[in-house]
């Protein structure tokens, strides 16, 4: 579905990704694990085109994304939910959804504000609230809903559980599982293995901008040495 091949990327001349290889397969939920600063956010930004990579290839649905603008990538059906949510704070909930709206796409679930309000009942109750006056959890739901309005086939979630109350974490986790059932491929970045385990089928661990493990969640669970090496303090 989405593949990064030997991607080098960074900000200015600071390099964050070093020959990173990464793969998201059709219909799966993959967790991109790694510590703060390992390059998870950079990898996702490079994929959606917000950061141009120095070298390497990024392929989505058999199309090369390297020279495309973010809006073109989004229109190919790759959605992005940023870490800091980036809600349009001056816009209402409904207006935020409107910004994300794209035409119906063959082979992808079709989302309407009504359907999204069923998925996130909270949003339905605050249709005319301004984004800036919502809580962190509500903003997180809104930013996922906004991305879904583009009827994507795959979605990138950057630390979707970050800073959320346990109850909301469960809510979001349930949503991600529902998205998978609807046929979406999901790549989420996460620092915390506990959260990743709630949703992910497969795990990729990156460290210092390089892929250092890729395998099933179960295999990772069964290998304490591996966890100790990359994830433990």
């Amino acid at each position: 579905m989405l593949e990064l091949r030997r991607v080098n990327a960074g900000y200015g001349r600071a390099r964050i990704l070093f020959d990173l290889d990464l793969e998201l397969r059709r219909g799966e939920v993959a967790a991109l694990l790694g510590r703060n600063g390992a390059g998870k956010t950079t990898a996702l930004k490079a994929a959606i085109g917000l950061l141009s990579s120095f070298s390497g290839k990024i392929i989505f649905n058999n199309r090369e994304l390297n020279n495309l603008q973010p809006y073109q990538i989004a229109r190919l059906g790759l959605a992005y939910v940023p870490e800091d949510r980036r809600i349009f704070t001056d816009l209402t909930v409904m207006e935020n959804l409107e910004v994300g709206r794209q035409p119906r796409r063959a082979g992808a679930p079709h989302w309407t504000p009504q359907k999204l309000c069923e998925l996130f009942p909270n949003l339905g109750r605050m249709r005319d609230r301004r984004g800036g006056s919502m809580s962190g959890g509500e903003q997180q739901m809104l930013t996922i809903a906004r991305a879904l309005m583009g009827n994507p086939v795959a979605i990138l979630l950057d630390e979707p559980f970050e800073g959320l109350a346990p109850l909301i974490v469960d809510r979001i986790a349930k949503t991600i599982r529902e998205l998978k059932r609807e046929g979406l491929s999901v790549l989420l970045s996460e620092q915390n293995l506990r959260f990743a385990r709630l949703v992910a089928d497969r795990a990729c661990i990156i460290e210092k901008g390089r892929l250092c493990y890729a395998g099933t969640m179960a295999a990772l669970d069964a290998d304490p040495a591996l966890r100790e090496r990359y994830l433990s303090v």
Partner: peptide, 18 residues
């Protein structure tokens, strides 16, 4: 000491694995 601290291991990386 910090490495061995259970709380650190639980909130930071590695989850509740220890």
């Amino acid at each position: 000491e910090v490495r061995a601290n259970a709380q650190v291991r639980s909130v930071y990386l590695g989850g509740e694995y220890g």
